[in-house]
Design a protein around this nucleic acid. Structure first.
Lengths: 115, 115
DNA sequence: GGACTCCCATTGCGTCACAAGGGGTGATAT
DNA sequence: ATATCACCCCTTGTGACGCAATGGGAGTCC
C-alpha cells in the first residue's frame, strides 16, 4: 500500500477545509468526514492534522469559531468561513489547478521536448 | 505573483525529476531546465531544492550518477534512472493522479453531499 | 456502569521546499 | 589578458506542516 506516500497533502488540506465550510458552518469532525466522503475515502484526515489546521486557518483570519451543539447533542466547535476565507478558497483553488495542470502536463509528456 | 504559495511542490518534485531522466541521463541543471520548460515556466526549481532532491533520490537507489562533460564542455554530474526509479516513477505518478483526481473532485463539488 | 461513538486537543517527530551563500570553470567580449 | 557572464555544483539554516501517539470529556445504549 502507498509505498512512497510523500504526503501530497501539503497545501491542499487548507483548501479542502475551506471548501467543506463553503456551504455553512461545520464542526471539525464533520469537516473531516466531508473530506473523506467527497474524495471517496481517498483522502483521510487524521485528527492530529485536522485540528492544528483549523487553528491555523483561524489564526490567519480565514475562518472563525463558536461553541455549539452538534446534531447528536454534543459539545462541538463550529467553524464558519469568513470573507477572507472565501476569497482564499477562490484564489487558492485557482493556483492549485494551475499547479496540477502544469505538473500533470509534464508527467504525461511523451517526448523530452515540450510538445 | 504567487500570492499564497503554500508549496504544493511537496512530493511532486521527485516525480518530475524522475520523469526528466526518463529519456536518458541528464545533469542537474538540465533537469531543472526541463521542468521549467515542460511546465511552461509555471514550476521553477531552486538550486537549494534541486540538488538535495537529487541526492535524496540517489540515496534511495532510484537514480545514480557519474561525472561527465556537458554539451558546453563543462564538468557536470549526469544522473541516470535506475530500474527502481523507473518503477517508482510509474507507481508515484499513478498515486499522484489518484490524489489529484480525488482532491479536484472535492474542490469542484457544487453540493455538500457527494454527487 | 461498561462500552462505544463523537468531538476536542497537544506533543514530538520527520520530511522537505526554499532562501541565502559559496565555489569553480568555460566562453565571450573588451 | 582579464573581466564578465552563463553554466554547474554544493551546503546550511529555517520554517512549515502532515502525522502518529496520546489523553480527555461527554452523550447514548445495553
Amino acid at each position: 500500500m502507498h509505498d512512497l506516500d510523500v504526503s501530497l497533502m501539503r497545501g491542499t488540506l487548507d483548501l479542502l477545509i475551506l471548501k467543506a465550510l463553503s456551504w455553512g458552518p461545520q464542526h471539525g469532525y464533520a469537516v473531516a468526514e466531508w473530506i473523506e466522503r467527497a474524495t471517496s475515502s481517498t483522502l483521510l484526515i487524521e485528527e492530529g492534522t485536522l485540528y492544528p489546521a483549523l487553528h491555523r486557518l483561524e489564526r490567519k483570519g480565514w475562518i472563525e469559531a463558536d461553541w455549539g451543539l452538534s446534531d447528536n447533542n454534543r459539545r462541538a466547535k463550529f467553524y464558519r468561513l469568513r470573507r477572507e476565507g472565501r476569497a482564499q478558497l477562490r484564489a487558492g483553488t485557482s493556483s492549485w489547478q494551475r499547479f496540477v495542470e502544469a505538473a500533470g502536463r509534464a508527467l504525461r509528456a511523451t517526448a523530452p521536448r515540450t510538445a
